[in-house]
Simulated scan of single mutants.
Amino acid sequence: MWPFGNNTLLDADTTAWQLGNFEWLLKVLPANNDFAATRLILPRPGFFDSHGLKGDDLAQSLFDQVKAYCGMVDWPVELISEGTAPKRSRDLIQVPDRNLGFSGTFATDGNAAIITYDPTLLDTPHDFITTMAHELAHYLLAAVPDERVCDDAHEEHLTDLTAVFLGFGVFLANSAFNFEQWRDEGLGASQGWSYKRSGYLSETELVFATALFLTLHGKDTAEAEASLKPHLAKQLRQAMKELGRSDLNNLRVLTRFQ
């Protein structure tokens, strides 16, 4: 019998997809990405330091810190600032729902990698860090020769899940959906609203994956809840309860907590 009830955060197929791919990640990732040593990275003081830098220097500093948390300090990669987001039109009243993915790209160049980013992300360092975690997850997966357990259509979803596996679940969940109301006096007091989706897994899916990360680490939700948007913190508590009723032995034996 499926261990979850009818009023669950995710449907049975989505839950099974997450558990199956998390198990695959535990089996195939390089030894230097030791899941047991992975921290939950939070948007709180003590995790990232801007060192008073700006522009490209700030981007490189934050990127290096993300690399360190991912266990990828020695992985060769060039970070490049590229492109900008579209300017807001004076006639804009509302922006329809758009899935913008991540404002970054990943590519390989011989034995090294190239990661690009939209420089406007530095206006919101949280989003820059989230984007870098996603792109580094691409890099990590590119080094895994084993056949994926998911199909090609879900490669980006697997990349999101990998970023959660690397400890960035709270960052991704908070960035997955953003609503903005704005007023621009410089454009004749134009005003309106916009919202965007970032990434590929939904907010709820990212919260569930974060709960799985915490459950396998044997941690409570207090720190994560304090850093999540309130409605996501509530979902996290529900996910932890659901996972507490499930059989995760096949995943637990693959961690190094045993």
Rank of each mutant, 00 (worst) to 15 (best):
M1Q: 12
P3Q: 08
P3F: 08
N6W: 04
A16T: 14
L19K: 06
V28C: 11
L29R: 05
P30N: 13
N32I: 11
N32H: 14
A36N: 07
R39Q: 11
P43F: 12
R44F: 10
D49M: 09
S50P: 07
H51F: 11
H51G: 08
D57E: 14
D64I: 12
D64Y: 13
Q65T: 14
A68Y: 08
Y69C: 08
M72E: 14
V73S: 15
G83I: 06
G83D: 12
A85C: 06
P86L: 09
D91L: 05
Q94Y: 07
P96F: 01
G101H: 03
G104Q: 04
D118S: 09
L121I: 10
F128Q: 09
T130A: 14
T131D: 09
E135N: 10
L136M: 15
L140Q: 09
L140R: 13
P145R: 15
V149F: 10
C150F: 14
E156T: 06
L158I: 09
T162G: 00
G169K: 00
V170F: 04
L172K: 01
N174V: 02
S175Y: 02
A176N: 03
E180W: 11
Q181M: 14
Q181A: 15
R183A: 08
L187I: 11
G188P: 00
Q191T: 10
W193T: 10
R197L: 14
L201E: 02
L201K: 03
T204Y: 02
E205R: 07
V207P: 00
A209F: 05
A209D: 07
T210R: 00
T210L: 03
L212Y: 05
L212D: 11
L214R: 01
K219P: 03
K219C: 05
D220L: 02
D220H: 00
T221D: 12
A224S: 07
E225Y: 00
K229P: 00
K234M: 09
L236R: 01
R237G: 10
R237Y: 01
Q238L: 04
A239W: 01
A239F: 02
A239P: 03
G244T: 06
R245F: 11
R245I: 08
N249K: 13
N250L: 13
L254W: 04
R256C: 08
